[in-house]
Design a protein around this nucleic acid. Structure first.
Length: 565
DNA sequence: GCCGTTTTCGGCCCGACTGTTTTCAGTCG
């Protein structure tokens, strides 16, 4: 009998860290920035692989088959696996100062920035850096951006945007089904509720051999740490740092287990408080193959996963008065898309064809306004030409109407970036902030309120400017802005770009409660990005929005009537 | 160093504004 191969010594993440460290040192050496980027990207590829890279190397698999790994990096990986180290990395480390070498132990830290902190705060070690981070001195003396950089690089960040979680979930799902012999696997928890930031991944599975599944999962990504395990539940730390919980359920109790694994703590507590005990269902002899059967037994109508946050959904379900949440098929058009006129990658005609392909009735072309130079903002005289061009195009094409719009910059003083006589020729506007994020809360709020006073202001684009896990967004008094929008007949956007999702579900709910309708827009810069709509729909559903509360679920004549001021 | 429906070289956004780290790097889409 053949011997079992020895367990891999290196996890994929450990190999990826070596490549990232190399990239980091190369960047301090003023090496070709594209080469630096190549190492970083290859590291990302490896970090996301379910298969053990060490195994692949030992089995002589051609690593260049994987995207972003070519001959050079493939050889570097082989060297790391077979010799345990990377000569190029070691030699670079020996050439730099001990301080930089110490910084290099943290691949995500930018040495240049750290050295600046060292100089400013008169410190020289990671230890001291951590301490200054804790006391808040870095934020005070070097700004919040710097604080954020060090924080994310030093303290291992395990949460990720929903968009990234999608990749992890599908990789784990495939691994469970194809490598672990699981007959059924469904992602649960925050991911299933479509929460925009995912701290950990969880799955419900059906299997005849749970211990075998555990054993296989311990090899995920080369090596995964088993944190805890029981008869039907196991918790892992994947080598990438993500926590993974796997729970097994029998077919006849699947519905009950799915509710228990999906609901937020608050949702489950609300169920229990209302005397609707899931545990009784789990123990009973009755079969609950799906969630509807289980909810029915609890005296509730089916509650969509996105609503299971413990707000009012249990009460509403008991009265059968849950909202009918907006669905992809309710969307009748797109109101925020770019074209080659500014920084988009497809022409107006191509975008229109893409939107028609999606079954849309209309497409609003909202290119950037003149001030936003980096995005090739449309000069005022070219806007006039674009308006005429779209008029002609609408006569020529069929099956879709192109709406004349613009993503108009809200300037620092709250004025709009085009003169009124040009704005009045547009069907509507999306008005956004793209500069001066650092204004104080009052000033920033006043800026937006003043912009809303312009009668050609229609929709506030990406209202808080946040980028998930990257940038907090500017500070505004949301209640005042919502109230002003209601008074002036303005609207908000849920920007579906997966690193924005702005408005948040919470703010979208506030807006809805105030009676202010919301556009679910993609901010698409290409035909493909029109599909971002699904991320925005997820958030709208979390906000409890029904189709009737979404601007672009309306037919154009109705929409036109509503947005007219 | 990677990559190719412009395929073995020459690309891989980019350009003005902001403001403190202070005269250049970070930032905005």
């Amino acid at each position: 009998m053949k011997d079992q191969p020895a367990p891999p010594l290196l996890s994929n993440a450990e190999i990826a860290d070596r490549l990232t460290s190399l990239a980091q040192l190369l960047s301090t050496q003023k090496e070709n920035p594209f080469k630096v980027k190549a190492y970083r990207r290859a590291a990302e590829t490896i970090r996301a692989l379910p298969d053990s890279v060490e195994d692949l190397v030992r089995r002589d698999v051609d690593l260049t088959e994987y995207s972003r790994i070519g001959k050079g990096i493939s050889n570097a990986i082989r060297e790391i696996v077979l010799s345990g180290s990377l000569r190029k990395l070691e030699s670079l480390r020996s050439q730099v100062t001990p301080e930089v070498a110490a910084i290099n132990e943290y691949p995500r830290l930018d040495p240049k920035r750290v050295l600046r902190i060292y100089k400013k705060l008169k410190i020289s070690s990671i230890e001291a850096l951590k301490e200054k981070l804790e006391t808040g001195e870095i934020a005070r003396t070097l700004g919040v951006r710097m604080d954020q950089h060090v924080r994310q690089a030093l303290i291992e960040r395990r949460e990720m945007p929903l968009y990234d979680a999608e990749d992890v979930v599908s990789a784990v799902e495939e691994y469970l089904l194809n490598r672990c012999g699981v007959s059924r696997a469904e992602a649960t928890g925050d991911y299933r509720r479509r929460v925009e930031i995912i701290p950990e991944i969880s799955f419900l599975i059906e299997t005849g051999d749970f211990p075998a599944v555990i054993a296989k999962l311990e090899r995920y990504g080369g090596k995964s740490e088993l944190l805890d395990s029981g008869d039907s539940r196991a918790i892992f730390r994947l080598s990438s740092g993500t926590k993974l919980t796997v729970e097994a359920a029998r077919k006849e109790k699947w519905g009950v287990a799915l509710i228990a694994c999906t609901g937020s703590e608050n949702h489950l507590r609300k169920l229990a408080d209302a005397g609707r005990n899931l545990k009784d269902l789990a123990k009973s002899k009755q079969s609950f193959p799906d969630e509807t059967a289980a909810y029915t037994k609890l005296g509730l109508s089916f509650i969509e996963p996105e609503l299971r946050e413990g707000r009012d959904e249990v009460e509403l379900a008991a009265r059968s008065s849950l909202p009918v949440l907006v669905r992809a098929t309710d969307i009748r058009g797109e109101l925020h898309a770019h074209s080659t006129s500014s920084d988009g990658s497809h022409t107006i005609e191509q975008m229109a064809a893409g939107a028609r392909e999606k079954g849309y009735e209309y497409l609003g072309i909202s290119d950037h306004s003149q001030s936003l130079k980096i995005a090739r903002g449309v000069p005022v005289k070219d806007l006039w030409l674009q308006i005429r061009f779209i008029d002609k195009l609408n006569q020529k094409i069929s099956g879709i109407r192109i709406l004349k719009s613009a993503e108009v910059d809200i300037l620092a003083d709250g004025s709009l970036d085009y003169p009124d006589e040009r704005l009045r020729e547009l069907d509507y506007t999306v008005c956004s902030i793209h500069s001066r994020f650092a204004l104080g809360k009052t000033e920033q709020t006043e800026r937006i309120l003043r912009a809303m006073d312009n009668r050609y202001f229609t929709i506030l684009g990406h209202p808080t400017g946040r980028l998930l896990l990257k940038r907090p967004g500017y500070e505004i008094d949301m209640q005042r802005v919502i109230e002003h929008a209601r008074k002036n007949g303005c609207f908000f956007e849920i920007n579906s770009s997966p690193d924005r999702l702005d408005l948040s579900a919470e703010n979208a709910r506030l807006s809805r409660d105030a009676g202010v309708k919301i556009a679910i827009s993609t901010d698409a810069h290409s035909i493909r990005e029109l599909d971002y709509i699904n991320w925005g729909i997820d958030q709208a559903r979390r906000a409890g929005l029904a189709g009737g509360e979404v601007l672009n679920c309306l037919a154009w004549p109705e929409l036109q009537r509503i947005i007219k001021r």
